[in-house]
């Protein structure tokens, strides 16, 4: 395979899990709730998916379980910040620790277990196309699904009536309430949905990509997802691009090494974060249009 083909394919493989998580976080933050505990939701999804797959033999049952588990864990966050008005950043960090602890605790019997993985389904004919074929049409179902999902979420946020409601809540719960909406319900739904997608992201790692469960399987990808949401300025399609960029950075350093080119993994691993900061700076210069105003409260509270 050519270098470009290899890196592009790798970018999609490595970027998919983060893409799910950041798409979910886009929705949550569009409702004015930031969830720093995405990492915990990803782990919950990864483990729940793995356990259910191991017990039932069906990775599809595992996907459902991952969706539910990620959503349930995020609902804890929603309860704390929406119903109890708790500090969002603190609650999110606590959620991360909870996910880490719970999955390590309940995941022990499943380390070294073996599951029927969610396998790749090359699309007949299309996967044979030179260059593009293997890049786009030789993946697992979760990877295929994430791209249409990004498009659908973009339509949902910017073109649908529901999206208007979501964004209205994210701008100001008071005005949304005055307009006859139920801000709390919408925020609950958005946060839970965000966690559920993070759960799918985790499942993509545990069921398809690696077919493995180990403690801390996601290795910080949840934090990358949060960073990407901001990089994407709360736009699902940009989040998709950001996740591919992250996946590309990972794939690039490995593909270069496989070709005997020495790269410092440390410097390459910095790039997604530095890029995000640069994008933030560029956007800030143009005025923070895309910033859900509701989030300002979080960032202007005293912590």
């Amino acid at each position: 395979m050519s270098f470009v083909t290899s890196v592009s394919t790798g970018a999609i493989r490595a970027g998919t899990s983060v893409m799910y998580a950041s798409l979910g976080e886009v929705i949550a933050q569009r409702a004015g709730i930031i969830n720093l505990g995405v990492e915990g939701c990803m782990l919950a999804g990864a483990l729940a998916g793995y356990i259910v797959t191991a017990e039932t033999g069906s990775p599809y049952a595992g996907i459902v379980a991952a969706f539910v588990a990620g959503g349930l864990l995020a609902t804890v966050h929603a309860f704390l910040v929406v119903t109890r008005g708790a500090n969002q950043l603190a609650s999110g960090l606590a959620l991360m620790f909870l996910g880490l602890g719970l999955t390590a605790f309940f995941g022990r019997p499943y380390v070294n277990d073996q599951i029927t993985p969610l396998r790749d389904y090359p699309v007949p004919m299309l996967s044979e196309i030179p260059y593009f074929g293997p890049v786009l049409f030789d993946h697992d179902p979760l990877t295929y699904a994430v791209f249409p999902l990004a498009g659908a979420l973009w339509w949902f946020v910017f073109r649908s009536r529901w999206g208007v409601m979501l964004r209205a809540v994210g701008e100001s719960t008071e005005s949304a309430f005055a307009a006859g909406l139920h801000p709390a319900r919408i925020q609950y739904a958005a946060v839970a949905f965000g966690g559920a997608l993070a759960g799918l992201g985790g499942a993509q790692i545990s069921l398809a990509y690696t077919a493995t469960w180990v403690e801390n399987l996601t290795n910080g990808r949840g934090f990358i997802a949060v960073a990407l949401v901001i990089f994407a300025m709360w736009n699902p399609l940009r989040a998709m691009a950001g996740a591919l960029l992250f996946g590309g950075a990972v794939a690039l350093q490995l593909q270069l090494q496989a070709r005997g080119v020495g790269v410092s993994p440390f410097l390459l691993d910095m790039t997604p974060y530095l890029l995000t900061i640069i994008v933030l700076l560029a956007w800030a210069q143009r005025g923070q249009d895309a910033f859900p105003a509701g989030l300002n409260k979080v960032f202007r509270g005293t912590g």
Binding site: Y209, V250, A251, L254
Partner: peptide
């Protein structure tokens, strides 16, 4: 990091 290992194998 199992995901990174898997990607290395593919590379």
């Amino acid at each position: 990091d199992p995901a990174k290992i898997a990607e290395s194998v593919k590379s």
